[in-house]
Amino acid sequence: MRRRRYGPALLLVLTGAAILRISLFSDLYLRYVQVGLRPYLVVSGVVLAGLGVVAAVVGRRSYDDDGADHGHEHHGHGLRIAWLLALPALALLLFPPPALGSYSAEREAAQKAAQGVGTFPALAAGDPVDLTLAQFSSRAIYDSGRSLKGRTVRLTGFVTHGDDGTWYLTRLLVSCCAADATTSKVEIRGTASDGPPPADTWMTVTGTWHPEGRLGSDAAWPPVLDAMSAKRIGQPADPYEKR
């Protein structure tokens, strides 16, 4: 009877704690949403946990006043089903799912980072210049001014594999959260001959653009980078690129 009386309150507290676990006490929320949504997650977690505490206090007072737990016979089946809602919250609290990786990227249809051929602003001075994969792809595919020509760039992403032995540096782009993620990738050539790195390995690759196909055409995608160096790194706290 007590379990049924405190069940809804415990569910609220558990859900609130799970949200606070990933947003207030760590950066794990960046696996799922953009950084700007953190305050809303924190507030949501506090509200849910607070409501759970209030529900528990009210339930205890009600039980103390009545000395009985009325009506549980009619709601027992519904409460048992409601407990299933605790499983996602418990998983998020104890075992937060990883960020999207190569599986999601390979299932995503090819996405071009810009539309239409045109000129782009000049790159920052100095080599290598750090670019996101989306920035590199846009310039490689659509920049009629060839701003990448003769420049050394540095890109960061995770490894995905092609069917023909090629491998790509890949990054997922999000507008709001992981649910709207699309893929940006760059083919890497000229690395060591001992085979491509394992899928989902995070790497920073430095190299030069290798022109392929006519600007704006399907033959120009994905763009190619002739690698000069490739270094394995840990997954960034924020694994997604922003649109």
Rank of each mutant, 00 (worst) to 15 (best):
D69V: 05
H210M: 14
A89F: 09
A55Y: 06
G234L: 05
A227G: 04
H75E: 11
G216F: 03
F95R: 10
A91T: 15
A237N: 13
W209Y: 09
Q135S: 07
T166V: 00
G190Y: 08
A192W: 04
D164Q: 10
L51W: 02
L11T: 03
L48E: 05
G157M: 01
M228N: 06
G36H: 12
A219M: 00
G16L: 10
L133I: 08
D218N: 11
A113D: 05
L79Y: 10
E73R: 15
L12C: 15
A99E: 13
G234S: 12
L169P: 01
A124R: 12
S193D: 15
G150I: 05
L93K: 12
L51G: 11
G165Q: 02
G195Y: 03
G67H: 09
G234M: 01
V174P: 09
L11P: 00
L148H: 05
S23A: 15
G234I: 00
F95T: 13
S26D: 08
T201W: 09
E212T: 11
V54C: 02
R38F: 04
L131E: 03
H210R: 15
L24R: 09
A55C: 06
Q34E: 04
H70Q: 13
S62A: 15
L84C: 09
D66I: 01
L93P: 12
L92G: 14
F158D: 04
V129R: 04
Q34L: 04
W209R: 02
G195M: 00
S193E: 14
R3C: 09
R21T: 06
L225V: 04
L12Y: 12
L14P: 06
G116F: 07
L172P: 15
G118A: 06
S102D: 14
L20D: 08
V54H: 07
G190K: 01
A178F: 12
G213C: 08
D64Y: 04
K112N: 08
H210D: 15
K185R: 15
L24W: 08
Y63K: 11
A56E: 02
S104M: 12
G234P: 08
R5F: 04
A178G: 10
